[in-house]
Design a protein around this nucleic acid. Structure first.
Length: 422
RNA sequence: GGUGGCGUGUCUGAGCGGCCAAAAGAGCACGCCUCGAAAGCGUGUGUUGGGGAAACUCAACCGUGGGUUCAAAUCCCACCGCCACCGCCA
């Protein structure tokens, strides 16, 4: 949610931001109109209420006929107050609903445009030249079978399309990736967290996923709760309705959880393998910090993501995601894309977003700084999304015979240097 | 799932129809005292929203949502959460 005062004072900026995202700028005017109506309703209600309070006080002191007259007057006033209160809460609800439709204001640095208009920031590492090495690289599905690591057929049999089993070294590889990610995070001072993956509506809405992203979320109607698509949700909501001590900021967490995604609208996209699946595990980094430090924190998280990919010895590039491709909560987002040899292209493996105060305002998370309270900024970033990292590792580190070399950083966690054929 | 108890400010905890934003204590901040500290004394110390240039002022908030009443932290109903015991399961 955007600060209503900010919208009042900078309507053009917010309109421009909406346009940049390819979203409707008219919402800004609807919010402003609803805000004016809301304030009028408040004034009306409060004047009546003050009058009623005054009258009610005089009733206690009054006696006899005077008292009876006051009671009559009170009844009339009471009805008026009730009506005005109903109008007020209706106006507030309306204004709130409109405000929820607005996405976060774009960072002025964020490139404007659609998915293809990202800004390429850097390339790290060089893709292997399989032609020079004299063999055709196998894709992760084939490698996964040869190594006894990935079983998508049984995943489909038991759960449906886009489900999979990790078996043998595949399962071990997940544990190694998670252990490496968590131990790196702890070394960097993050607090490791295993959050709930089933959350209630306020947590989901506050994090900003019930807008355009709602279609992609599993909902358990019977119990009125949602399966999270990322541990960003329970981590953000961890401090919901709290006032944090500004001295203790930044607060940094690393959450390990399963993620559930319906992948609605992704029909026909990445149907092979485990690039796009309904259920996977991920280690997510999350920061609560002072708004003025959010930009620096964003760079810090990006650096941790790069460190991870470098440790996995994977060639990758970093992009500054374009405005039209940002989530509703993000003011700016950087993606790290790993080189996938059999696709001949870079694919997103990690991503970090600066949500400024947008989520904190929805989730009511503030900091106390001396006498003042104000909203904190929130940021999130992927430490490791397991399936995509497995794809990148298998494909980039494969040998001609289908065996796969284990990156040095993972060897201590796996007690092996190579994945052998089964 | 059943029964009983409880949900009040940063915390503990009183209040159980109007005089209650809410006692008291703790904590915190400032001041006095002191060479300095502790103790002691004094003062202050919630959030949100409206109006106002400001001083300030008005309103709302005692788990959440309804209701009764001129008036609700206080009475009634529903829901949520916590605790205890029982049952069930691991």
């Amino acid at each position: 949610m955007i600060d209503i005062k900010f919208i009042r004072e900078n309507p053009d900026l917010v309109r421009a931001s909406q346009k940049g995202r390819g979203e409707d700028p008219i919402i800004v005017d609807q919010v402003l109109a609803a805000d004016t109506a809301r304030r009028d309703a408040i004034v009306e209600f409060e004047a009546l209420r003050a009058q009623q309070n005054l009258l009610s006080k005089s009733v206690g002191a009054a006696k006899g006929n005077e008292r009876l007259a006051l009671l009559e007057e009170g009844k009339v006033l009471s009805a008026q107050v009730k009506a005005a209160d109903a109008r007020r809460s209706e106006a507030e609800k309306r204004m709130h609903q409109f405000a929820l439709l607005l996405s976060n204001v774009l960072d002025p640095e964020a490139p404007i445009g659609g998915e293809a208009d990202f800004l390429l920031l850097e390339h790290v590492g060089t893709p292997r030249d399989f032609v020079a090495e004299g063999f055709e690289p196998k894709d992760h599905v084939e490698l996964g079978k040869l190594l006894g690591a990935i079983d998508t057929e049984r995943g489909a049999k038991v759960s449906g399309a886009r489900f999979f089993y990790l078996t043998g070294v595949g399962a071990l590889l997940e544990f190694a990736l998670v252990n490496y990610a968590i131990s790196s995070a702890v070394k960097a001072g993050l607090i490791p967290v295993i959050p709930p993956v089933l959350v209630n509506p306020p947590a989901m809405e506050g994090t900003g996923f019930l807008g355009q992203a709602a279609e992609d979320i599993y909902r358990l109607e019977k119990d009125d709760c949602y399966l999270v698509g990322t541990s960003e949700v329970p981590l953000a909501a961890f401090h919901m309705d709290e006032i944090l001590d500004a001295e203790k900021l930044p607060l940094r967490y690393a959450g390990y959880s399963t993620c559930f995604r319906r992948e609605a609208g992704a029909y026909g996209k990445d149907t092979r393998g485990i690039i796009r699946v309904h259920q996977f595990d991920k280690v997510e980094m999350f920061t609560f910090c002072r708004p003025e430090n959010a930009g620096v924190e964003h760079q810090r998280i990006l650096q941790w993501e790069k460190d991870f990919l470098n440790a996995m010895e994977i060639p990758f590039r970093v992009i500054d995601v374009a405005s039209g491709d940002l989530g509703a909560s993000a003011a700016r987002k950087f993606d790290c894309e790993a080189w996938i040899p059999t696709q001949g292209t870079y694919r997103e493996v990690t991503s970090t977003s600066n949500c400024t105060e947008f989520q904190a305002r929805r989730l009511n998370i503030r900091m106390r700084d001396g006498k003042n309270t104000s909203h904190v900024a929130t940021l999130n970033g992927t430490a490791v999304a397991v399936p995509r990292m497995i794809v990148a590792i298998l494909e980039n580190h494969q040998n001609a015979d289908g065996t796969v070399n284990v990156p040095k950083a993972l060897q201590p966690f796996l007690s092996m240097t190579r994945f052998e054929l089964v």
